Simulated assay, not measured.
Amino acid sequence: MADRKICIVTGTRAEYGLLYWLMREINEDTELELQLIATGTHFSSEFGMTYEQIEQDGFVINEKIEMLLSSDSPVGITKSLGLATIGFADAFERLKPDVIVLLGDRYEILAAAQAALIARIPVAHISGGETTEGVIDEAIRHSVTKMSHFHFVGAEEYRRRVIQLGEQPERVFNFGDIGLDNINRLKLLSKEEFEKSIGFSLGKINFLVTYHPESLSHRNPLLTVQALFEALDAFPAAKVIITKPNADTGSRVILEMIDEYALVHSDRVFACTSLGQVRYLSAMKYCNVVIGNSSSGIIEAPAFQVPTVNIGNRQNGRLKADSIIDCDDSADSIKLSIEKALSGDFQKEMTSVMSLYGIGNTSEEIKNVLKSAQLESILIKKFNDFGINSVN
């Protein structure tokens, strides 16, 4: 019988892709038992019913928590948060995990952290200490940090920030960003295999586009997406692959606009709910520019030495490599940034770009800590006074 039960929570396709290798590491360790809770958009037909991919990958989902209401308004999302908290309370009581692993900053992760806090179950949080100033995720991420007992961050600056929040330095680990494990460990598709898998041919110039609504912005996301499409239309020879946003406030209007845009421009635009990690990273490998405001343009794209046009404020505060071009959400600014990314001089600079988020092998490092960590008295947290004790 396994010595320690480690429960991983996943609520979106992107998050599952980041957690995949950690789940594998735990599942293959005979001294550990993997427990898996799926929730959020994994059970939404609108977002691809991606829990099926988890099961196809050979994992057993121990608990399925359906919590999404058919509304992306602030009221609807708040009610979904409440439903998720109730669901996690029941799930944790049935599973009785020794440690719960949460990644990131979405509202279903906040629900899991709240339920774990009351259930007195230690939480290990991945990707704390980062800042994303344009979305409510910023406050959620730091709140989850304060409810967590182990912290696995993506860079040294983020480690210092978690310690600044009062966490004990010996419980904050910088093994690099977990997303880079996919680049190192997945077998990506050849260009021909990728084209066949999506039924769409690439061209001489290819764009990979993902745009999420900025939940703290007062600007209508419809206007930003219209500006993005106007900028893309300035490059009629480019083939465009669009992946759709997660279930955030205002996402449904974006989904409708993407579908309409892809239908009108079917000769050069391919849109889908989810590519999955292998196809998404393969698309990134073969594209000329990553466009939008996804964290993958900040973390993974530099590892491929592919330039990123980062739109708006969603990723403000993150560490950014020299391959990232920030712009506002006007059509002219996006267009000029794409032109810069495609320019010969900028493309030459890509050969010297390096990731700011480590070199991978993060999942194994996290698993080893979770396996060996002493859990006795771990729930009693002492505040590390930043002005008194060194962050080192």
Rank of each mutant, 00 (worst) to 15 (best):
S215N: 12
V101L: 12
R106E: 03
P307A: 07
R185Q: 15
G40D: 06
L68S: 08
E63Y: 03
F386P: 03
R13D: 05
V369A: 05
E130M: 00
A119H: 12
L356S: 04
A262H: 09
E195L: 12
G134R: 08
Q35G: 12
S337P: 10
F47P: 01
A227R: 00
K244F: 09
H218Q: 15
E193L: 08
S323Q: 10
Y158I: 01
N184A: 14
V153N: 04
V225E: 05
S71I: 14
I86C: 10
Y261P: 10
T145D: 08
V225P: 00
N246G: 02
K204W: 09
A112K: 10
R141A: 03
S127M: 08
F59M: 07
A283C: 13
S143E: 04
N389V: 14
N206C: 13
E193F: 08
I121C: 11
P169C: 09
G82H: 09
A262G: 13
S355C: 07
K335S: 15
G104A: 06
L103G: 04
I118D: 14
T362C: 10
P221Y: 04
V369Q: 07
A89F: 12
S330D: 05
L102W: 01
I241N: 07
F47K: 04
R94C: 00
E66T: 14
S148F: 09
A331N: 06
S274G: 00
E108K: 05
K96D: 09
I26W: 07
M350I: 09
A115P: 11
N313F: 13
E300D: 12
M67F: 12
A91H: 06
A84Q: 07
K204F: 11
N392K: 13
N389M: 14
R279I: 01
L102E: 03
E193C: 09
S44C: 06
I65M: 03
A234P: 02
A112Q: 09
R106G: 01
G199N: 13
N368Q: 15
A301T: 10
C327T: 13
M147W: 06
P307E: 04
K244S: 10
V75S: 15
S333T: 07
I241C: 10
N310P: 00
D57S: 12
C327G: 09
A262E: 13
R318L: 00
A271S: 15
P221V: 02
S282K: 11
N184K: 14
S294A: 12
L188W: 01
E260W: 00
D29M: 06
I136P: 08
V9H: 01
L32Q: 08
D233P: 04
Y286G: 10
G58R: 11
A155D: 04
R4T: 06
Q53H: 04
Y20S: 07
N368F: 05
T41H: 01
D137C: 06
H218V: 14
G104C: 03
S70V: 08
V306Q: 05
T273G: 00
I258Y: 15
M49I: 01
P74I: 12
K367A: 01
L379Y: 05
G166W: 05
I121P: 07
L370P: 03
G17T: 06
D385A: 08
L180I: 03
R279V: 01
E66A: 11
F270I: 11
L356P: 03
N182Q: 10
A283N: 09
S45G: 14
N184E: 13
F383V: 13
K371N: 05
T50Y: 02
F152N: 09
